[in-house]
């Protein structure tokens, strides 16, 4: 018996999910951040964020098709974290690092928060 592992399968699946998002195929929720709107797949949001996991496992909220986030959330920070969810790449612009970290705290993305902390400490002169 043999087993073949396609080592790039996970990243290929993620790339296709991101293609589905950009073509708005089977996206099932709109995330409202201040006046900006982001279409996404609930399953991808739940897989990446503790906050969305809690929201969409709540039987009263799992059928919502629009979620407004706290107005303190920065839309640019959210956009960068949503891109990270679908690409595994976190773009850290100097001017946005705090907005990204605060949004990751809000979204309960602890591993991203820890990584941002380490990045800030390592880049402190």
């Amino acid at each position: 018996d043999s087993c073949i592992q396609f080592t790039r399968h996970a990243s290929d699946v993620l790339l296709n999910l991101n293609r589905l998002r950009s073509r708005d195929i089977l996206t099932d929720v709109t995330i409202l951040v201040n006046r900006q709107q982001f279409r996404a797949h609930k399953t991808v949001l739940m897989a990446c964020s503790g906050l969305f996991y809690t929201i969409f496992t709540d039987s009263l909220k799992c059928n919502l098709n629009a979620i407004s986030l706290d107005p303190k959330v920065d839309p640019e920070g959210f956009a960068i974290l949503l891109e990270f969810m679908y690409t595994s790449r976190l773009t850290l612009k100097e001017s946005l690092i705090m907005a990204i970290m605060n949004t990751a705290i809000y979204l309960q993305m602890d591993h991203v928060v820890d990584t941002c902390h380490r990045f800030i400490k390592s880049s402190d002169p």
Binding site: M46, A47, C48, S49, G50, Y53, T57, M85, S88, R89, T91, Q108, M109, D110, H111, V112, T115, F119
Partner: peptide
């Protein structure tokens, strides 16, 4: 992502969804 300094993070990136609640 050309021209961007890319740091490879080998650690866990996201939470783990429990097998059951």
């Amino acid at each position: 992502y050309e021209g961007v300094n890319t740091i490879k993070e080998m650690g866990r990136s996201i939470h783990e969804i429990p097998r059951q609640e």
